[in-house]
Design a protein around this nucleic acid. Sequence first.
DNA 1: GTAACTGCAAAATATTTGCATCCTT
DNA 2: AAGGATGCAAATATTTTGCAGTTAC
Lengths: 138, 138
Amino acid sequence: MNTIEDILKKAKLNVTEGRKNILEMFVLGGGALAHADIEKNTSVSIDRVTVYRTLQTFVERGIIHLIPTTDNTILYALCKDNCSDGHHHDEHVHFICITCNKTNCLEEITVPNIQLPKGFKPIQAAMIVKGICLHCKN
Amino acid sequence: MNTIEDILKKAKLNVTEGRKNILEMFVLGGGALAHADIEKNTSVSIDRVTVYRTLQTFVERGIIHLIPTTDNTILYALCKDNCSDGHHHDEHVHFICITCNKTNCLEEITVPNIQLPKGFKPIQAAMIVKGICLHCKN
DNA sequence: GTAACTGCAAAATATTTGCATCCTT
DNA sequence: AAGGATGCAAATATTTTGCAGTTAC
C-alpha cells in the first residue's frame, strides 16, 4: 500500500494533496526539516499558513516531532512507530553535521541513562551530538 | 571585586547600566533566561532592540550561551570559565523542570560519551533532561 | 451532506537595520 | 576626542486568527 496515505489514515486525517506532499518530504528526505525547507520545496503550491497548520497537526497526531537544537532553529522529523498520539518517546540521539548542516536521527542509538543529583526526577531525555557526518567525512 | 563588571571588562565590553543589569539577572538568577524574561524584568528601562543586541554580544564574547531545548523556545545561560570567546565547551547536562518550567545547568554532570555509528565523528555533545526538579519535588 | 481542510486577508509578534545621539574609556 | 553603545523609527520576517469557499469522506 501507499505508505504516505497509510500514515495519514492511521492518524485519522483526511488525505489531501498538501498533506501528502509535505509528508512525502519527510518520508523520502529522511532527515530533519525546518518550516522554511518545506515552504520552499513543495511541488504543489501550499499556502504558508497551511504549512504551519499542517506541521502543527502532524505533531499533535504523532506523525512528526520537534527536534532539539543547539542554535535557535526549529526542526521537525518523522516519528517512528513508538510515538503514539502526542506522546513521543523520542529518546534517540540526534546528530547535526557541521559541514552539510543536516540533522540526522540516529534511531539505533538511545540516549544513555545518567545519574542526576539527589532530588531530581528524570522523565524524558534528549541528546544532540554535533560533528561530521558519514557523507561529509572525507 | 565586583563580579559583574569584571565579567564585562574581561570580555572587553564597555560597562553600561543596561549590560550590568542584564548580566546581573544571569549571575543572580542562576538559571536559564529567555529574551522575554529579560525584557520584562530589567530594573532600568532597556529598549527591546538593545536587549537583542546585548544578548547577541554576550554570546559572541562567550559570556552566555544558547541552551538546547526540546520545544521551540530560545534560552540563554551563563557560561562557565571554560567557555572562551565564541568557543563553548558546554558539555554539562541541562535539566528542564516540567513543573516550575525552569532550566537548570547541572554543571557537575557531564554529558556521557556515546558510541556513534561508523563514520560519524563527534565534536560536541549536549544533553537535556526533563523532569521534576529539587524544589518541585514534593 | 457534513465535517474537515485550505487560502486569503489581516492582525499580532518577533527580529533586524539605519542612523542620530549619548556614554564609556 | 573617539569609538562604542543606545534609543527610536521603520523595515522585515514570523506566527496566529477569522472567515468564506472548497474538498474528502
